[in-house]
Design a protein around this nucleic acid. Structure first.
Lengths: 226, 226
DNA sequence: CGATATTGGATCAATAATGGATCAATAGTG
DNA sequence: CACTATTGATCCATTATTGATCCAATATCG
C-alpha cells in the first residue's frame, strides 16, 4: 500500500462528517473496531487520527463508553448543570463566593442604588425583624441581600446571585439555618443589616463593603464554625 | 451484543412522552417492573435512566408509591431567567464581573491548582497560539480561563463562570471579537496568558491576580475602548 | 388495626463491549 | 540501505448491561 498519509485523510473524512452535520454534537461515533473496517485501515492508524481529533477538541473519547462528537457548551446545557451544581454545593463554597461578590457589589451599590432601592432594603429589614420563625426570617434576609446586589445595576450579576440564592430553598441549607440562627444572632444580623444600608445611604462604598464583609464573616462563622 | 447507550435512548423515549403531553404532570408512570418488559431492557438499566430523569427534575420517585411526572419547578424558572439574562447582557457587564471574579479565583488557583491543571492551561495556550482563525482562538481562550477558574476548586464558582462563558457563543459577542481581536492583540494576549500560568506555577497568588487583572483590563479596552 | 402485596432503593457478580497501550513485522519512500 | 508510516496482534482498564437478591416504604385488603 502507498504511503499517502492515511492519518490526515481519515481526519478530513471525519471532520467533514461533523462539519456537514451528518454527525451532530453528542453523536456517538462507530466503534474503533467498526471504523477500521469501514475505512479500510488498521486500528493503530485510525487511533492516531482520533487522537489528533481529540486534541483539537473535535471529539471526546471515553474508555468503555465510546467516542463522541464534542458538544459546545450551549447555554441550555450549562444552565441545567449549573442548577445541579448550585443544589449540590456546600455552604462553605457558597460563602466563599458570597464573601467576594457581595462586598464588591455593595461598593457599587453605594453609588448606584436609587432611593427606591434603599427603601426596599429597609422594608426587607423590617419584615425580617418581625418574622415569627426562621424560614420567614430567611426569606426576607435573602430578599435583602438580593436587593443590595441588584442595586449594583449589573443585570448579569443580579442573575448570578439569584441563582446562588436558590440554595436557600435546599432542605440541607434550611436545616443548617434552623439550627444556627438563634435569637441572639438574629438580633446581631438585624443591627448589621441596618448599618450596611445606612452606609449605602451615606454613599460610602468602602464602609458598605467593609460592613457587609464583616456581616458575611459572622454568618460564615455561625454556619460553619471558625 | 453492542453497547448502544440504552440508558440515553430510554431517557429520550420517556422525555418525549412527557414533552408531547402524553404523560402530563402528576401522571404515574408504569412500574419499573412493567417498564423493563415494555422497553425490553434490564431493570438496572431502566433505573439508571429514571435516576437521571429524577436528577433533572423531570420525574419524582417515591418508594412504595411509584414514579410520577414532576410538576414544573420554581428553581427551573430562576435558571431560565438567568439564561435570558446571560444572553442579553452587555460586554460591559460581563467584563465588570470577570474583573472581580477572575483575579480572586487566580489567587486561589495559585495554591490549589494541580500539576494536571497547569498542564491543561499550557495546552490551551498552545492551541490558541496555533489557531487558524478568531473563533478557534476564542474557543481555546475561553477554555483557558475556564481551566484557571476551575483550578480554584470551588465547584459553584466553576459553574457560575461556565454560565458567563457561554456568552462567547452569542453572535453579538463573536462579531465584537472578530472585529477587535487583531494579530497584534493575539500576540499580546498570548504573552499575558503565559505569564499568568507561570505565576500560578510559581504559586504566587498576588502576582497571578495582578497579571490576570491587567490582562482583563487590556481585553476590556480592546472590546469597549477606554 | 395487622398481614400481605406492591413499589422503588440498593447492591453484587458476571459478561461483553469499548477505548488505551504496546510491540514486532511489513511495506513504501527517499 | 535507513527511515517512517502502516499493519496486525495482544493485553489492559473502564464502562454498559444484564440478572439476581434483598431491603425499605407505601398501599391494599381482610
Amino acid at each position: 500500500m502507498r504511503k499517502s498519509d492515511a492519518v490526515a485523510a481519515i481526519i478530513e473524512t471525519i471532520e467533514s462528517n461533523i462539519e456537514q452535520g451528518l454527525w451532530k454534537p453528542g453523536f456517538r461515533l462507530p466503534t474503533e473496531r467498526e471504523l477500521e473496517l469501514r475505512l479500510g485501515v488498521a486500528r493503530n492508524t485510525l487511533r492516531k487520527s482520533l487522537k489528533k481529533l481529540e486534541e483539537d477538541g473535535k471529539i471526546v473519547r471515553q474508555i468503555g463508553r465510546g467516542s463522541f462528537v464534542a458538544e459546545p457548551a450551549t447555554s441550555n446545557n450549562v444552565m441545567t448543570s449549573l442548577l445541579n451544581q448550585v443544589l449540590g454545593s456546600s455552604p462553605s463554597e457558597v460563602m466563599e463566593i458570597r464573601l467576594v461578590l457581595e462586598p464588591w457589589a455593595a461598593g457599587l451599590a453605594a453609588t448606584r442604588a436609587t432611593a427606591a432601592d434603599l427603601m426596599q432594603m429597609r422594608d426587607c429589614i423590617a419584615h425580617a425583624a418581625g418574622a415569627p420563625d426562621v424560614p420567614t426570617f430567611e426569606k426576607w434576609d435573602g430578599e435583602l441581600h438580593q436587593t443590595i446586589i441588584s442595586s449594583a445595576k449589573n443585570g448579569l450579576l443580579a442573575g448570578l446571585y439569584e441563582a446562588i440564592n436558590t440554595v436557600r430553598h435546599q432542605p440541607e441549607w434550611m436545616k443548617l439555618k434552623q439550627r444556627t440562627v438563634t435569637d441572639d444572632r438574629r438580633a446581631a444580623y438585624h443591627r448589621q443589616h441596618g448599618e450596611i444600608v445606612d452606609a449605602l445611604a451615606e454613599r460610602d462604598p468602602e464602609k458598605a463593603a467593609r460592613l457587609i464583609r464583616d456581616h458575611l464573616i459572622a454568618v460564615r462563622i455561625s454556619l460553619l464554625g471558625e
